[in-house]
Amino acid sequence: MTITDKTEDDLLLDGFFEAARAPVPAPDAALTLRVLADAGRELARQGLPAAAAPRAQTGWFGFIGGWPSLSGLAAATAAGVWIGFAPPASLSDVTSAVLGDDLSVSVFSMENLLGTEG
């Protein structure tokens, strides 16, 4: 079908389909950690502790303690992201007073998390 063959109905739907096909942002760290935490829980549920797998203890993953640590890390990361977006006034006052107004701490970048560095 060429563009000139399209009916008014086709053109109407094309507009909706095009809107829905807008680029979707990549998964953020919080979602990625939720998914990895699920994977870890599933291994544990099946009696396959990932700690037994040598590969699981390499790099950043082993450094943070393997799968058991992921649930807590996911929650902590989500909380950290939220605090970063909306710091309570009291927290903001304290950090500003002690550390100054500009403070940014990054423990894990997405590159580290996804192992895409280097």
Partner: peptide, 16 residues
């Protein structure tokens, strides 16, 4: 078979 590294790679490939 218990390989956690495989989950990390699958997640980076498939989740987006």
């Amino acid at each position: 078979n218990g390989d956690a590294e495989a989950a990390r790679i699958l997640t980076s490939r498939l989740l987006p």
